[in-house]
Nucleic acid binder design. Structure first.
Lengths: 202, 202
DNA sequence: CTGCGATTACCGAGTGGTCGGTAGGTCATA
DNA sequence: TATGACCTACCGACCACTCGGTAATCGCAG
């Protein structure tokens, strides 16, 4: 059965990685199955043999990317707790993976258009990520943040900063120090202000 | 010469507005000239009579959008100085213009892909906007921001927050209070911290 | 006021190309 | 012999863009 590559599973992953690249370079709408196929030495129909449609291919690409990202986040914090520093380290690591960052930026923005196949994925992803991030912030900084912010407010701001910096960085890598600016934002959250009463981490 | 609408100029603007809508709904790559034409009751060739190519159409759409945005920013600050509050008001106003926000989000992210016709536009736009925003911040908050940030660091963070919040808001308008969260971020910048030495605005 | 050439505002038809997806086959392996 | 891994051939739809018209309107000469 297997003609060229290894197992079916490894062939599928090969295609998924190529698809991630092509989606990063051209977006979902702009990417063609044929161009993905070419990159792994198959015909368009060869790719469709492994994935029934372009939509499904996208869905699996996103799932794979999420897994990998989780690895990056969870592995360093071996023992258990993920800290804000782990998140900053992820941002730093992202500087080495322009393709991944670009695919995420392009696809997530594209997904806001109606009926986009990735829309549900991103909506759910942000929803759960915000809850999770609020917990991380609360665990590390407590309930009282500067200027009276709550962890539930800080969490969406955190992702906004990450995403927004990625966009500016992709457009002008030489001008934007993405990890530096992200840490600067973190230090805003960690600062103790004098104005609104009781602060109390840990 | 004029068959249906008013002047040539008004016809062009009509097309530009329709194009902005379609780009917002489908992105640049996903939009077809024909679908834009349909919206203004023309044939595809009718649109190409006014704009020589899809690329040029996009360029003019972006230029128009920028003009309008400038109106929103500059008019309220009639006398002269634009303040951070004016910017917050723009974010608030954006909540009423989902289409505009969506077009900006989709197109700016799409523009990071190589050879995208809007790439230069957005790169330059962010570059000048950061310089301008740093000045606004310095004028209002001085050189010393919380946690030792400089206005030049705060400016890209500002746009990152705006863009990132727009993305999350577009995906989940009910969960994300975009202007509220933006003001929360502003209050982080305005807070006076006690930790790292000399603070001294104005 | 009339007539006329120039200009403009389109549209029909077509070009060559790409799109996602299907049908049906060949062929090596198990 | 059965199965899975492909491929060739094809489909109808759509893409941006070009060409060559036609008809309405203008400026202007008489």
């Amino acid at each position: 059965m297997v003609r060229r590559g290894g197992s079916r599973e490894s062939r599928r992953e090969e295609i998924l990685l190529a698809a991630l690249d092509v989606f990063a370079e051209r977006g979902y709408t702009g990417a063609s199955i044929a161009s993905i196929a070419e990159r792994v030495g198959l015909s368009q129909q060869g790719v469709l043999h492994y994935f029934p449609s372009k939509d499904r291919l996208l869905a699996e690409v996103l799932r794979l990317r999420d897994e990998r990202n989780l690895d990056v986040l969870v592995l360093p914090g071996e023992g258990g707790a993920i800290t804000l520093d782990t998140v900053a380290a992820l941002v730093e690591y992202n500087e080495q993976r322009r393709g991944i960052v670009q695919s995420f930026t392009v696809l997530s923005a594209e997904s806001v258009i109606e009926n986009h196949p990735a829309r549900d994925f991103f909506k759910e992803r942000y929803g759960t990520a915000r809850v999770w991030m609020a917990e991380v912030i609360r665990a590390e900084l407590g309930d009282e943040l500067p200027a009276g912010l709550t962890p539930e407010q800080a969490a969406p701001l955190m992702f906004a900063v990450m995403d927004g910096l990625q966009l500016q960085w992709l457009l002008a890598p030489d001008e934007i120090d993405m990890p530096g600016l992200f840490r600067a934002f973190l230090s805003l959250l960690k600062a103790r202000d004098s104005a609104p009463g009781l602060s109390g981490p840990t």
